[in-house]
Design a protein around this nucleic acid. Structure first.
Lengths: 235, 235
DNA sequence: TGCATAGTTCCATGGTAGTCGAACCATTCA
DNA sequence: TGAATGGTTCGACTACCATGGAACTATGCA
């Protein structure tokens, strides 16, 4: 009992305006980049970077690296609970609006992320496969189930060839516009190849946009049916 | 961003070691004098006075004047909730402020945590209720089962009255001597009241110790039977 | 390849806030 | 009335730390 929990050091971290705003912005559950957070907090990137490293050191926040982006989010539910009770105590309401990404609608809908499909449709594919029990897994690495193997083969993917490569077959890649995972890895890349081969979609030259034809999108949505509503939200 | 609840200024107040210790000392629910608090926090009276006036200004703490004494206590239950969640988070993160001092055996055995029972016996009550299927739940919030309701009514708790309050009925509060949860929330507080009413136990004046009589402890252990291995105590 | 962007580190600066000594006021009690 | 105790105010010292400018690394894109 003389081992008093050090609530002061935690509270001190929250007790700075910039950091509090950063944490509040993360309360949406979405992962945000340092730049977005710096805008939200209204301080420079250097300052934000310093704040974020403190929050990460204290394990209040975790970070996930995707290319040159680093996505930050609350480390666990307890952190959210603390913020929540603090907000309750402050008995006021307010939501921080953060500008998330480009306004290019086509980019948001479907684009290339390295070599696989990202954007709304990429997320749809991922969610569909997960919901149908084709892939499983909590973290970044996903496992392809038996059902998933059958699905892939039916779709014309040569799994044996893919497995020969060193590359992981299935990975969850965090989408920067939707902030929810889409399918990466060897299989993710191969699926995109199939979409092109089937003439469902084509790349728009000079950009990363993937343009689906009306027929192609309909075919995609049919193949990757999504039986409703709340896709288990990324945490 | 300018209308967001100002959680930073609140957290900043808690984010100082002396003030955090003061607030923790008040978690017993007792009103304490400035001098007592200065001893608890280990700072001078002037410093304590300055801290207290800040806490009062911010309405986290209220003061009651009695003669030349001024009794300070937490302003309301929300403040206690914030501290409680912070303690929970601190433990999850494993940050404890080690303060060398005599280990008071009585405190470890049974003490008041804000307004409910903590210590070995508090943990025993929690574990018993859980093992008998009276409460369920993984996180901080627990649910009272039908069986639990019957148990509480039999024990003389007026559940209907408790449910009328805003306060959550059952919460798991992490014990910082035993590192295991005990029962908090409205029911936790009410149970402690019953223990006092039944004359099983009494508070030791001026401390947070709850002293059970031999008869009282036997009665408690009988009522909250705990089948199987004793509480695995580290240390 | 060259350019733009994301993000970090280093550093100087200025403000804020925790601390206690000393003096002061208020209450109680002998 | 004087002494003791509870508690606050004032002022000075000090340490911490949030901040952004500048320079730097790394990644992605055309």
């Amino acid at each position: 009992m003389h081992d008093t929990p050090d609530i002061a050091s935690i509270a001190k971290l929250i007790g700075d305006h910039a950091r509090a705003t950063i944490l509040m912005a993360m309360m949406t559950g979405r992962a945000l980049t340092a730049t977005e957070l710096s805008r939200a907090a209204g301080v420079s990137k250097q300052t934000t970077s310093s704040h974020l490293s403190k929050l990460v050191d204290a394990k209040l926040v975790v970070v996930e690296q995707v290319g040159r982006h680093r996505y930050f989010r609350l480390a666990n539910h307890d952190v959210g609970t603390v913020i929540e009770t603090l907000v309750g105590l402050a008995h006021r309401l307010g939501v921080v609006h953060v500008d998330t990404g480009p306004t290019d609608i086509a980019m948001r809908k479907a684009r290339v992320c390295y070599d696989h499909l990202a954007g709304d449709l990429g997320v749809l594919v991922h969610d569909s496969l997960r919901q149908q029990g084709c892939v499983r897994g909590d973290g970044r690495e996903l496992t392809l189930t038996d059902k998933g193997e059958r699905f892939a083969e039916e779709f014309g993917v040569d799994l044996a060839a893919l497995e020969n490569r060193r590359r992981p077959l299935c990975l969850a890649c965090l989408d920067w516009s939707v902030r929810r995972p889409h399918l990466a890895g060897a299989l993710g890349a191969e699926l995109l190849e199939r979409f092109f081969a089937l003439r469902w979609a084509a790349r728009v030259k000079g950009t990363r946009v993937v343009l689906f034809s009306a027929i192609g999108e309909r075919a995609l949505r049919q193949r990757f049916r999504f039986r409703e509503s709340g896709p288990a939200l990324a945490r």
